[in-house]
């Protein structure tokens, strides 16, 4: 399944062979509540780590989704855009947002492992 990492902004990143799949964590989906709109990035868009690449709206509010790493958008989850509630039902799986083709040797130093992320939630 590759390596699973997290950001401090409650995204998850799965690294597999130079490709990062990005989604929002279960905690984030819970905190946002019912998702009603997801705006995904254009295919082929180059993004820098920390840049806003997607928007997710719940009934209550809009939130930006940031790029955890630099790369190029190579795939977006159209099923999520068509049915944003997928992001509540399965945030860590079917509710993924987009995939990035990474640069060689991506800098993973800003990301958290599962233990560090859990510690962040408990703070």
């Amino acid at each position: 399944m590759g390596q699973l990492l997290f950001t401090r902004d409650h995204e998850w990143v799965r690294l597999e062979g130079g490709v990062a799949t990005v989604g929002i964590t279960h905690h984030a989906a819970e905190a946002l509540g019912d998702l009603v709109f997801v705006e995904l990035p254009d295919l082929g868009r180059p993004v820098m780590a920390g840049e806003t690449v997607a928007v997710v709206e719940s009934v209550k509010a809009a939130s930006d989704v940031y790029a955890p790493l630099s790369g190029t958008v190579i795939e977006v989850n159209q099923a999520l855009a068509d049915d944003p509630a997928l992001g509540n039902r399965d945030p860590g799986g079917e509710g993924w947002f987009y995939k990035l083709a990474l640069e060689t040797d991506p800098d993973l130093s800003g990301l958290l492992d599962i233990h560090e992320y859990r510690a962040l939630l408990e703070e």
Partner: peptide
């Protein structure tokens, strides 16, 4: 991701 609700929570 960052937004008002999450920040508040």
């Amino acid at each position: 991701m960052r937004g008002s609700v999450l920040e508040q929570e």
